[in-house]
Protein backbone atom coordinates (compact mmCIF):
# COMPACT_ATOMS: atom_id res chain seq x y z
CA UNK A 1 0.00 0.00 0.00
CA UNK A 2 1.22 3.51 -0.82
CA UNK A 3 -0.22 6.72 0.61
CA UNK A 4 0.34 9.76 -1.57
CA UNK A 5 -0.33 13.41 -0.71
CA UNK A 6 -0.78 15.78 -3.67
CA UNK A 7 0.09 19.21 -2.35
CA UNK A 8 1.23 22.70 -3.24
CA UNK A 9 0.50 25.75 -1.12
CA UNK A 10 -0.52 27.55 -4.30
CA UNK A 11 -3.96 27.21 -5.87
CA UNK A 12 -4.71 26.51 -9.51
CA UNK A 13 -1.57 24.49 -10.18
CA UNK A 14 -3.43 21.30 -11.08
CA UNK A 15 -3.54 19.48 -7.74
CA UNK A 16 -7.11 18.27 -8.07
CA UNK A 17 -6.75 17.41 -11.76
CA UNK A 18 -3.61 15.43 -10.90
CA UNK A 19 -5.16 13.66 -7.91
CA UNK A 20 -8.31 12.67 -9.82
CA UNK A 21 -6.49 11.60 -12.99
CA UNK A 22 -3.88 9.54 -11.16
CA UNK A 23 -6.51 7.89 -8.94
CA UNK A 24 -8.74 7.10 -11.92
CA UNK A 25 -5.78 5.89 -14.00
CA UNK A 26 -4.46 3.57 -11.28
CA UNK A 27 -7.96 2.15 -10.77
CA UNK A 28 -8.23 1.50 -14.52
CA UNK A 29 -4.97 -0.46 -14.25
CA UNK A 30 -6.66 -2.78 -11.76
CA UNK A 31 -5.44 -1.18 -8.52
CA UNK A 32 -7.79 -0.40 -5.64
CA UNK A 33 -7.65 3.30 -4.92
CA UNK A 34 -9.18 5.65 -2.35
CA UNK A 35 -9.12 9.34 -3.25
CA UNK A 36 -9.60 11.66 -0.27
CA UNK A 37 -10.60 15.30 -0.76
CA UNK A 38 -9.21 17.57 1.97
CA UNK A 39 -10.37 20.82 0.35
CA UNK A 40 -13.71 22.37 1.49
CA UNK A 41 -14.23 23.39 -2.17
CA UNK A 42 -15.20 19.78 -2.86
CA UNK A 43 -13.69 19.74 -6.34
CA UNK A 44 -13.07 15.99 -6.32
CA UNK A 45 -16.79 15.18 -6.29
CA UNK A 46 -17.39 17.79 -9.05
CA UNK A 47 -14.64 16.32 -11.21
CA UNK A 48 -16.18 12.88 -10.99
CA UNK A 49 -19.75 14.05 -11.55
CA UNK A 50 -20.78 12.90 -8.07
CA UNK A 51 -23.12 14.83 -5.74
CA UNK A 52 -21.25 16.83 -3.10
CA UNK A 53 -21.03 15.46 0.45
CA UNK A 54 -19.30 15.82 3.79
CA UNK A 55 -17.84 12.32 4.12
CA UNK A 56 -14.54 13.54 5.59
CA UNK A 57 -16.17 15.43 8.45
CA UNK A 58 -18.60 12.55 9.07
CA UNK A 59 -15.77 10.03 9.39
CA UNK A 60 -13.53 12.01 11.67
CA UNK A 61 -16.25 13.54 13.86
CA UNK A 62 -17.73 10.08 14.51
CA UNK A 63 -14.48 8.19 14.97
CA UNK A 64 -15.08 6.17 11.83
CA UNK A 65 -12.46 5.23 9.27
CA UNK A 66 -12.25 6.85 5.85
CA UNK A 67 -13.01 3.45 4.35
CA UNK A 68 -16.31 3.37 6.33
CA UNK A 69 -17.61 6.54 4.66
CA UNK A 70 -16.02 6.21 1.20
CA UNK A 71 -18.35 5.91 -1.75
CA UNK A 72 -17.56 3.79 -4.79
CA UNK A 73 -17.36 5.68 -8.09
CA UNK A 74 -16.40 2.85 -10.40
CA UNK A 75 -14.45 -0.40 -10.29
CA UNK A 76 -11.45 0.15 -8.06
CA UNK A 77 -12.09 3.81 -7.28
CA UNK A 78 -13.52 4.94 -3.91
CA UNK A 79 -13.72 8.57 -2.86
CA UNK A 80 -14.10 10.44 0.41
CA UNK A 81 -15.85 13.71 -0.37
CA UNK A 82 -15.35 17.08 1.21
CA UNK A 83 -17.57 20.17 1.43
CA UNK A 84 -18.22 23.18 3.69
CA UNK A 85 -18.43 20.82 6.72
CA UNK A 86 -14.67 20.38 6.32
CA UNK A 87 -14.26 23.97 7.53
CA UNK A 88 -16.21 23.09 10.69
CA UNK A 89 -14.08 19.98 11.11
CA UNK A 90 -10.88 22.02 10.88
CA UNK A 91 -11.96 24.37 13.67
CA UNK A 92 -13.04 21.41 15.79
CA UNK A 93 -9.61 19.86 15.31
CA UNK A 94 -7.75 23.08 16.06
CA UNK A 95 -8.00 22.65 19.84
CA UNK A 96 -7.36 18.91 19.93
CA UNK A 97 -4.23 17.08 21.04
CA UNK A 98 -2.55 14.85 18.46
CA UNK A 99 -4.63 16.50 15.74
CA UNK A 100 -1.90 15.90 13.18
CA UNK A 101 -2.57 12.15 13.52
CA UNK A 102 -6.30 12.27 12.64
CA UNK A 103 -5.75 10.89 9.16
CA UNK A 104 -3.31 8.22 10.32
CA UNK A 105 -5.97 7.04 12.80
CA UNK A 106 -8.78 7.31 10.26
CA UNK A 107 -6.91 4.90 7.99
CA UNK A 108 -6.63 2.12 10.52
CA UNK A 109 -6.68 -1.26 8.72
CA UNK A 110 -7.15 0.33 5.33
CA UNK A 111 -6.60 -2.14 2.51
CA UNK A 112 -6.50 -0.06 -0.65
CA UNK A 113 -3.43 -0.36 -2.90
CA UNK A 114 -3.25 3.44 -3.06
CA UNK A 115 -4.67 6.22 -0.91
CA UNK A 116 -4.39 9.66 -2.49
CA UNK A 117 -4.96 12.92 -0.60
CA UNK A 118 -5.95 16.00 -2.59
CA UNK A 119 -4.78 18.83 -0.32
CA UNK A 120 -6.20 22.35 -0.09
CA UNK A 121 -3.90 25.22 -1.12
CA UNK A 122 -3.11 26.26 2.45
CA UNK A 123 -1.09 24.91 5.35
CA UNK A 124 -3.88 23.93 7.71
CA UNK A 125 -4.31 21.06 10.12
CA UNK A 126 -5.54 18.68 7.41
CA UNK A 127 -2.60 19.51 5.15
CA UNK A 128 -0.24 18.69 8.02
CA UNK A 129 -2.19 15.54 8.88
CA UNK A 130 -1.93 14.39 5.25
CA UNK A 131 1.86 14.81 5.24
CA UNK A 132 2.06 12.92 8.52
CA UNK A 133 0.00 10.05 7.13
CA UNK A 134 1.57 9.93 3.65
CA UNK A 135 4.48 7.84 2.39
CA UNK A 136 5.06 10.19 -0.54
CA UNK A 137 4.49 13.83 -1.31
CA UNK A 138 3.87 14.71 -4.95
CA UNK A 139 3.97 18.36 -5.92
CA UNK A 140 2.30 19.62 -9.10
CA UNK A 141 3.67 22.99 -10.21
CA UNK A 142 3.14 25.39 -13.04
CA UNK A 143 6.20 26.47 -14.99
CA UNK A 144 6.28 30.15 -14.14
CA UNK A 145 8.87 32.33 -12.47
CA UNK A 146 7.66 31.36 -8.98
CA UNK A 147 7.54 27.63 -9.56
CA UNK A 148 10.88 26.61 -8.03
CA UNK A 149 10.19 28.86 -5.05
CA UNK A 150 6.74 27.33 -4.59
CA UNK A 151 8.14 23.80 -4.67
CA UNK A 152 10.89 24.71 -2.20
CA UNK A 153 8.22 26.08 0.15
CA UNK A 154 6.26 22.82 0.11
CA UNK A 155 9.43 20.83 0.73
CA UNK A 156 10.32 23.11 3.63
CA UNK A 157 6.89 22.51 5.17
CA UNK A 158 7.46 18.77 4.77
CA UNK A 159 10.80 18.85 6.52
CA UNK A 160 9.45 20.83 9.45
CA UNK A 161 6.55 18.38 9.79
CA UNK A 162 9.03 15.53 9.74
CA UNK A 163 10.93 17.18 12.56
CA UNK A 164 8.02 17.47 15.00
CA UNK A 165 6.15 14.27 14.10
CA UNK A 166 7.29 10.79 13.23
CA UNK A 167 6.18 11.29 9.63
CA UNK A 168 8.19 9.15 7.21
CA UNK A 169 6.87 11.03 4.20
CA UNK A 170 9.37 11.34 1.35
CA UNK A 171 9.26 13.55 -1.72
CA UNK A 172 7.88 11.25 -4.42
CA UNK A 173 8.16 13.72 -7.26
CA UNK A 174 7.41 17.06 -8.85
CA UNK A 175 4.97 17.28 -11.76
CA UNK A 176 5.37 20.21 -14.15
CA UNK A 177 1.80 21.06 -15.23
CA UNK A 178 0.40 23.46 -17.84
CA UNK A 179 3.45 22.69 -20.00
CA UNK A 180 3.34 24.97 -23.04
CA UNK A 181 6.05 24.26 -25.57
CA UNK A 182 5.48 27.54 -27.37
CA UNK A 183 6.90 29.68 -24.58
CA UNK A 184 10.52 30.27 -23.66
CA UNK A 185 9.47 30.81 -20.02
CA UNK A 186 8.20 27.24 -19.81
CA UNK A 187 11.49 25.88 -21.12
CA UNK A 188 13.58 28.03 -18.78
CA UNK A 189 11.56 27.05 -15.74
CA UNK A 190 11.70 23.38 -16.64
CA UNK A 191 15.51 23.62 -16.98
CA UNK A 192 15.51 25.34 -13.60
CA UNK A 193 13.39 22.67 -11.92
CA UNK A 194 15.52 19.86 -13.35
CA UNK A 195 18.78 21.43 -12.26
CA UNK A 196 17.37 21.89 -8.76
CA UNK A 197 15.50 18.59 -8.34
CA UNK A 198 17.01 16.21 -10.89
CA UNK A 199 15.24 12.91 -11.27
CA UNK A 200 12.47 14.00 -8.91
CA UNK A 201 11.01 15.92 -11.86
CA UNK A 202 8.31 13.79 -13.50
CA UNK A 203 7.30 13.93 -17.17
CA UNK A 204 5.45 17.14 -18.00
CA UNK A 205 1.67 17.48 -18.35
CA UNK A 206 0.89 19.64 -21.40
CA UNK A 207 -1.58 22.49 -21.12
CA UNK A 208 -4.82 21.13 -22.54
CA UNK A 209 -8.30 22.67 -22.62
CA UNK A 210 -9.74 19.17 -22.25
CA UNK A 211 -8.85 19.39 -18.53
CA UNK A 212 -11.27 22.23 -17.95
CA UNK A 213 -13.91 20.76 -20.27
CA UNK A 214 -13.74 17.35 -18.60
CA UNK A 215 -14.04 18.93 -15.15
CA UNK A 216 -17.08 20.89 -16.27
CA UNK A 217 -18.65 17.75 -17.71
CA UNK A 218 -18.02 15.90 -14.44
CA UNK A 219 -15.91 13.34 -16.24
CA UNK A 220 -12.34 12.18 -15.79
CA UNK A 221 -9.84 12.66 -18.62
CA UNK A 222 -9.87 8.92 -19.30
CA UNK A 223 -13.63 9.09 -19.86
CA UNK A 224 -13.79 12.46 -21.60
CA UNK A 225 -10.79 12.45 -23.95
CA UNK A 226 -8.66 9.30 -23.55
CA UNK A 227 -6.20 10.35 -26.24
CA UNK A 228 -5.81 13.99 -25.24
CA UNK A 229 -2.48 15.76 -24.80
CA UNK A 230 -2.70 16.04 -21.03
CA UNK A 231 -2.94 12.24 -20.87
CA UNK A 232 -0.64 10.99 -23.62
CA UNK A 233 1.50 13.97 -24.65
CA UNK A 234 2.61 14.72 -28.22
CA UNK A 235 3.17 12.25 -31.10
CA UNK A 236 6.94 12.87 -30.99
CA UNK A 237 7.04 13.11 -27.20
CA UNK A 238 4.85 10.74 -25.18
CA UNK A 239 4.42 12.39 -21.75
CA UNK A 240 1.43 13.64 -19.74
CA UNK A 241 -0.46 11.80 -17.00
CA UNK A 242 0.12 8.36 -18.58
CA UNK A 243 3.87 8.84 -18.18
CA UNK A 244 3.31 10.26 -14.69
CA UNK A 245 1.30 7.17 -13.69
CA UNK A 246 4.16 4.99 -14.95
CA UNK A 247 6.50 6.77 -12.55
CA UNK A 248 4.02 6.42 -9.68
CA UNK A 249 3.78 2.67 -10.26
CA UNK A 250 7.53 2.53 -9.58
CA UNK A 251 7.35 4.35 -6.22
Amino acid sequence: MAIIAIANQKGGVGKTTTAVTIADGLARLGKSVMLVDLDPQGNVADSLGVDPGGDLNRAISNNMTLQDVAINVHDGLDIVRSDKTTVVLKSKLAGMDFREYVLVNAMDDDNHDYVIFDCAPSIDVLHTAALVAADYLIVPTRLDQFSVKGVVEVLRTLSSIRRFSNSGCEVGGIIPTFYDRQTVETQEQLENLVSTFGELVYPVVPVDTNCRKAHRAGKTLFEFAPKCRALVGYPELPCGYMAVINRILKL
Partner: peptide, 14 residues
Protein backbone atom coordinates in the same frame (compact mmCIF):
# COMPACT_ATOMS: atom_id res chain seq x y z
CA UNK B 1 19.50 11.83 -4.33
CA UNK B 2 21.65 11.99 -7.45
CA UNK B 3 20.67 15.27 -9.09
CA UNK B 4 22.55 14.46 -12.28
CA UNK B 5 20.10 11.65 -13.02
CA UNK B 6 17.16 12.81 -15.11
CA UNK B 7 13.95 11.06 -16.13
CA UNK B 8 14.45 10.13 -19.81
CA UNK B 9 11.09 11.66 -20.79
CA UNK B 10 12.08 14.93 -19.11
CA UNK B 11 15.44 14.83 -20.84
CA UNK B 12 13.73 14.46 -24.24
CA UNK B 13 11.34 17.30 -23.36
CA UNK B 14 14.25 19.59 -22.53
Amino acid sequence: IDLTAIDPVVEATL
